[in-house]
Structure formats: C-alpha cells, structure tokens
Design a protein around this nucleic acid. Sequence first.
RNA 1: GGUCCCGUAGUUCAAUGGAUAGAAUAGAAGUUUCCUAAACUUUAGAUCCAAGUUCGAUUCUUGGCGGGACCA
Length: 591
Amino acid sequence: MSIVSKLQAATVKSLGDLYNQAFTEKDFQVNLTKPEFEGDYTVVLFSLLKKTGKSPELLGQELGNDLIKNNPGLFTGFNIIKGFLNLHVADDFWLQLLKENYDKAGYGKQPANGKRVMVEYSSPNTNKPLHLGHLRNNFLGWSVAQILKDCGYEVFKSCIVNDRGIHICKSMIAWQMFADGATPHTNNTKGDHFVGEYYVKFNDEYKRQVAELIAKGLTEKEAEKEAPVMKATQQMLQDWEAGDPAVKELWRTMNGWVYEGFDTTYKNIGSDFDETYYESNTYLLGKGIVQKGLEKNVFYRKEDSSIWIDLSGEGLDEKLVMRSDGTSVYITQDIGLAQQKYDEYKIDKSIYVIGDEQNYHMKVLKLIAQKLGVDSADAIHHLSYGMVELPTGKMKSREGTVVDADDMVTEMINTAQQHTEELGKVKDFSPGELVHLYRTIGLGAMKFYLLRVDPKKKMIFNPEESIDFHGFTGPFVQYTYARIKSILRKETVDQHKPASPTLLKSEKEILVAAEQYPAVISEAARESDPSKVAIYVFNLAKTFNSFYSELSVSKAENDEKKQLRLKLAMMTANILKSGMGLLGIEVPERM
RNA sequence: GGUCCCGUAGUUCAAUGGAUAGAAUAGAAGUUUCCUAAACUUUAGAUCCAAGUUCGAUUCUUGGCGGGACCA
C-alpha cells in the first residue's frame, strides 16, 4: 500500500472521528510536499473547510494531531501553511522500505489479476516501409503491453497487416511494368523498401498518364479515371478477389518480400507479436456482420441496396457499412475482427494503438459494435496517439520528407557510436560488446524520445537537430545506471553489517522517489501512458545523480553509511532497469 | 459546412481546480589531485486574447484569434 493511500485512508478516518461526518478520499487532495516547504506529504485542506466549518489553521491542528496519534510509527510531525497540512514521515518508514526492497528486481510488479487484454499495434500497409510515425506506434504498443504485464494482466500483442486492396495492386502493376524480373535479392534492397519503390513508380507513371490525357483534352476527373495504369490496377484488384492464380502468386511473392523487410525492422527495434492477423483473411468477416445488423434492424438498406446505420441519435451521421456493389468497408471488417479476437482470446480489454486521425472511425466502430451487441464492444479501447510531425508540418512522401524507420535507427546507432568513441571509456570492449552497446544507447535514445511525451499529443521531430544524448533522454538514465553498476562492482552490500539508522536529505530523496514507483506503473497502465514511466525514471536518475555528486558511497563517513548508500544505489539501479524495461530500453553495465 | 483536438520559456515537453507554473535544451557563470563530467551547481527566461464560475483557473464554461485532424 502506497504512502499516499495510507495517508488518504488515515485522513478519512481521522476526519470521520473528529467531525462525526462521513468523508471519502475525494473530499481532499494528497500531494508530495513541495521541496521549498518542510515535510514529506501534504493534505490540502481548502476543500474541507465548508464541510467541517473550521478555519484552515484549526482544521490543520486537529487533523494533524489526530493523524499522529493514530499513526505513531508513520507520521512524526506536521506544520500548517495557509491551507496546507504538511506531514513528516518517519525515517523508519523509509528505512523499512529500503530494507525490504533494495535487492528485489521485481519491486513494483503486481501479482496476476486474472484479466486478459489484447494490444493491437504497428498495423502496417504492405506497400511501403515503416516510417517515424510507425516507430511511435510500435514503441507505444510494446511499452503499454509491457506495463500491463507488470500490472498483473495477461497480455496478447497483435498486429493487423493491411495486405490487400488497391494499394498493393499499384505496387504489383508497377513491378510488372518496370521491374524486368528484379527482386530484392537481385537489387540487394530490403524487401519493404523494394516494394515501396514500385509504389512510388506507380504514382509517377499515373501522374504522367493523367497529364498526358489532360493534354489530349480530358478533364482532370476523366483523366484520373481513364489512365491505363489505374484501369489495370482496378482490374487486378477484381482478379485478386476472383482468385486469379497468377495475380495471387505475384501478390504472395511481393508481400513475402515486404514481410522479410518488416521482420528485419521489427527485430532491429525489438518489436514482436503473439498474433498476426492479415486483412486478406479478415476482409470477408464484414459480410456476416452486415447480415447480423440487418436481422437486428440496426442496419437498413437504401434504394441503391447500399447498407447504412443511423447514428444521428448519438450526435453522429449516417454511416455506410456496405457499398451498393456488395463490397464491405473497413468498419464492418473491424467489427468482425473484434469479435474474432474475443472468441479466440476471451479478452477483457482490447486496446487499439491507432493514430488520432482515426478517432472518428474508432468511435463509430465501438458504437456500432455496441448496437450490434458484439460481446467485446465495451472492451474496445482506442489508444489514440498524435502524429509525429516535422517543423514544417506533416511528413509527405511526395515531398520526400518521410523519415524512414530503418534510416532513423541506423543514424541513431551511428551517433551513439560517435559519442562513445569521443568519450573513450570503453576501449577494452570487444567488437561484439561495442556493437551491442551502440545499439543499446542509440535505440535507447530514440525510444525514450518518442515515449517521453503524452501519447495523445502530436509531437514535433526536427531532423536537423538529431536526438539528444544529454538531459531528459534515454542515455542520461542509462549512464546513471552504468555509474551505479560501477560502484557495485567495487563494493558490495554486507548482510551482516548494520546500515545507518538515520537519513540525510539527499539519501531520503531517493527513497521518497523509489516509494512512488509502484503507483507510477499503475497510473501508466490505467492511462495507457508510458510517458509517465519515462518522466519518473528520469527524475529518479536525476535524484540519484545529485546524491552521487554530493555524497560518496565507497568513502562514506562510516561503515553504516556505506551500507545504507550501497543499498540505496542497488535499489535505484533495480528500479531504473525495470522502468526502462517497461519502455523497451536496455541499460548497459558500462558506457 | 458539420464534428473533434490543440495553443505554456527562443525551442521540445510537464503540471488529478491548489503553495512562488516544473524539466530539458539553447544562453550566462562555475565544479574534476575524490565511486564514470553522457554528470553536478548557480543564473536568466513562458500560461494566445477577453469575459465568467471559484476562497483559488494553465486546468472548468462561453466568445474571439491561431493551428491541426476527421466527416461529406
């Protein structure tokens, strides 16, 4: 039980005893005491004044005295400033926390809660390679899954691959036209990049043909419709749906190249999935949904035989669920897949990591699922994240401003290498160890950078200023960890020796921070927000660094202090390691 | 046109309605015979505008202005 919860419960009890009324935790706020005031935790009294009819000063006195009387081992004193009751927490409490947890690698983890949750993320298209936005998605999804695991959930990571449709046909047509039998292997190109090039070639050719037709007197709309490559592409999509063997074969081959490329990228960035769904398998699920919707009178048919749902009662519009030609739309497939996930995994919660451009779509999805009575409807949760933008605005493939994921990773690792070589601290590392270290630092910087901001908010990435290795960054935390490990290689905790029974200010600060870790994980899980963990882990590292520069561990004043500080160092290292682990970031023993 | 989101130091980000709005970076000034200076310490710098609710508003409400997304 966290100290905040303890204080809340104790305050509720004291208030009830003192004033003969019922109170709850929501009647008042409990915060960490701001550093410029005396005390550790603060009860904000303003909200209690009306109900108790007391002045802040009197209420603070009565409450403070009662809290101390009822919790003698926990609170040792208090002061009141304006409407703030600042309480002192006993050193023994912090020391006990340290004693029980300093060597527990699993500190902060919660026992299994029996709940099952699926996190769907990444969800690429097979017509182009992954870019910076996908990286944010991947890191978020992976991290949220990991955080939920530590909170006791059984987690299944899934990925839906958009592997069919007009977009992949475009790449296929362009390959037929221009490739002359080339493959990723003959061209020595990564498969996803190879196919992506043909997608670009398609668009170039299409534009050329449209311009040609316009020059011949067609309107822009006519030209776009009549361009031979577009017609061929549409024909190919129909052939694909009809099951044409040659088309399917080409489709399988080209998607295979893309998957090879994706696998390399995923492996490189440490992303993985327990289940992969392919749209080519799920796109027909929509038909059953439509049937069900018509039977339940949730859907209705229009004169042109297209099928719709009316959501105007919910403040939204009418929404198309099946076209007049009988082809389904995304939303119906998505509902079908939602049902399938539930059937296969019996999940209590289903998280979708999808960009905020799909907010409306996901809202409609959940609404329709609820109206249809789909089992998993209420479990659907859209983890909406903001786009990664450049200082100039959105990344645009047409303007060549898309930041490629593989390039980004390579660049970060190279930068890590350059920094490391300049500092020259690991000259004795083997080549293999060096490669691993560069990867750890480079990826650490990148993951931390993309995870440290609130997922809901869009973020701006400036390619001109490369991602930093100083300050609020992954390498800062990694460096703190490495420094601690350096101490712990030279000195070890001796179980038989007593640790200091008193705490200096900067020693206590570490424990105050450490105490919050379990609550931070819970909050991060509740909000699906890894940035809470990133911010926390940074602050803990900063707290330790101040301690480190102020007090010596190995040359402590006496042996008791040394034992205490060794334990503080060990506990900090454990939390930094597991916290960074939640972000998918490794910590090096040396750097 | 309709719906939704966002405006905080030069820049990138924080702040369950609470104390003097926090960090990082860039700027200025310092710290290494002492456990890794990828660090530490000091300093200067911000809530888009206007009303309203409140003991108290960056946060809630309304109206502007500015930016973005989605739906036709």
